[in-house]
Design a protein around this nucleic acid. Structure first.
Length: 457
DNA sequence: GTAGCCTTGAGG
DNA sequence: CCTCAAGGCTAC
């Protein structure tokens, strides 16, 4: 086989061995390809002799097939790509995605070379996964081969664990449903029936046309959904002040605890924003929740990074509350993980600044993050896909119009999104670990969101 | 059971 | 025709 296009640079996201091509949804090595095929075809059931968290690398991949298969699923290998009929040859439905992924990697490589940066190939699962699946905290892929005994697969066992967890955190769902009821909005059927491209008469059809300023109408609509920054700041400060007023001298939380409360409040407004968004409010509540559970941390990260871009001071961070915090003070006694997170954040701020990303592009980013059709078990996946494609289109059109001198801006923006996702995943893992250590304040939205996505808790 | 190599065949 | 991601074969 010809392993061209810098295959030698790519490492298998499962074991770190050299990649031999796209297999079952993403670039993997030959052995993990074979392992995944054998497991799915023969409906293998493995048991882990340890704690289901075995290290999988090239040397140890044979030791624990259970954890190896879990990792295969975790990084996004697709069960449905293993053919139930065992037919050889031909192409599967992922062909176009492989093609897109190749093009994206090519662009990314060019960008990285031009910036003189080193490419991360091992730990960044996202970069290896053309399906852009969620990859943090053990979310599982749906989709089984036809005729497969669903309940007998390790995948099913894993999925059941996840759903049990989800069931135990239905509090948010209930609150959500109640808010829906109080708000008096209907469970819109619009999203279920609407296909924009096929229905030019839809109320949103005109959004495809750019206005006189050259900004696509669609982007103007997205901008209209934005909450007022100052109002949000005021509300968050008010809420935090009320909390402070209620604290006795002993129960005052740590700096980390305070930060969590602030993040929690910001998260509340992220949810508030999403629920008021064009297109999003047309979705069923169940799909809304799935989308938000998937991307809340990315949205928070984007909010934070764009605030720093606007803040524009290198040595300090601007919090959502309007407070300015000196970076050296944070870095001085932060754990290594937090330090690395701050550095990644700063790097992204730098990239955003160098690309001169504006508010319209950020508005598109938020929708591209929110409308992720690869989220598991979406009832209206095609609608989500449609919106994502439309926002993609609008963003491309806008960047070409607004930055004609930078023809690659669009692809660079997409790379930013991918980097943002990787950083957000690290942040989630960090928050998970802090929660496990008991350092996070309880009973808040932040923890519910963590629970909804991670089974590590 | 693993993993390297081989064969197949739809789609470009 | 060529490509390349499927499944198959087989030495280990």
């Amino acid at each position: 086989m010809d392993y061209s296009f810098d295959m030698d640079l790519e490492l298998c996201p499962v074991c770190g061995d050299t990649v031999s091509g796209y297999h079952y949804g993403l670039l993997t090595c030959e052995s993990c390809k074979g392992f995944f095929k054998r497991t799915v075809q023969n409906n293998k059931k493995y048991i882990c002799a340890e704690n289901q968290d075995c290290q999988i690398d090239k040397m140890q991949r044979k030791r624990c097939p259970f954890c190896r298969f879990q990792k295969c699923l975790h990084v996004g290998m697709r069960l449905e790509a293993v053919r139930a009929d065992r037919m050889r040859g031909g192409r599967n439905k992922f062909g176009p995605m492989y093609k897109r992924d190749r093009a994206l990697k090519q662009q990314k490589r060019a960008l990285i070379q031009s910036r003189g940066l080193r490419m991360q190939t091992t730990s960044m699962v996202l970069s290896s996964n053309p399906m852009e699946c969620t990859f943090s905290g053990g979310q599982v892929q749906s989709g089984l081969s036809e005729g497969e005994d669903v309940t007998a697969t390790p995948h099913y066992v894993h999925a059941r664990r996840a759903s049990t967890l989800a069931a135990s955190f239905s509090g948010l769902a209930i609150k959500w449903e109640q808010r829906e009821l109080y708000a008096g909005t209907s469970q819109a059927s619009f999203a279920e029936n609407c296909t924009f491209s096929a229905k030019p008469s839809s109320p949103y059809a005109s959004l495809l046309v750019p206005d006189v300023s050259g900004v696509p109408q669609l982007i103007l609509e997205l901008l209209r959904c934005d909450l007022d920054d100052l109002q949000v700041r005021g509300k968050i400060n008010g809420h935090l002040q009320r909390l402070r007023d209620g604290w006795g001298s002993q129960e005052k939380p740590s700096t980390f605890g305070l930060t969590c409360l602030m993040i929690d409040q910001t998260l509340f407004y992220v949810v508030e924003w999403a629920r008021g968004c064009i297109f999003f409010k047309e979705l069923k509540v169940s799909d809304q929740m799935k989308l938000l559970h998937n991307c809340w941390c990315e949205l928070l990260a984007l909010d934070f990074i764009y605030r720093q871009v606007q803040h524009g001071k290198e040595g300090s961070m601007l919090l959502v509350t309007g407070q300015e915090v000196e970076l050296p003070a944070i870095m001085a006694d932060a754990e290594p993980v937090l330090n690395s997170l701050v550095q990644k954040g700063q790097a992204l701020v730098g990239v955003f600044q160098s690309l001169q990303i504006d508010r319209k592009e950020i508005a598109c980013f938020k929708f591209l993050i929110l409308f992720n059709p690869d989220v598991n078990l979406l009832e209206n996946k095609s609608y989500v896909e449609n919106i994502k494609e439309r926002v993609h289109g609008a963003l491309l059109e806008y960047t070409l119009h607004a930055s004609p001198q930078r023809v690659d801006k669009f692809s660079q923006l997409l790379l930013c999104l991918s980097d943002l996702r990787a950083a957000s995943s690290l942040a989630e893992d960090y928050l998970c670990s802090k929660h496990i250590c008991g350092e996070m304040p309880c009973n808040n939205l932040l923890i519910e969101m963590l629970y909804a996505k991670h089974n590590c808790l």
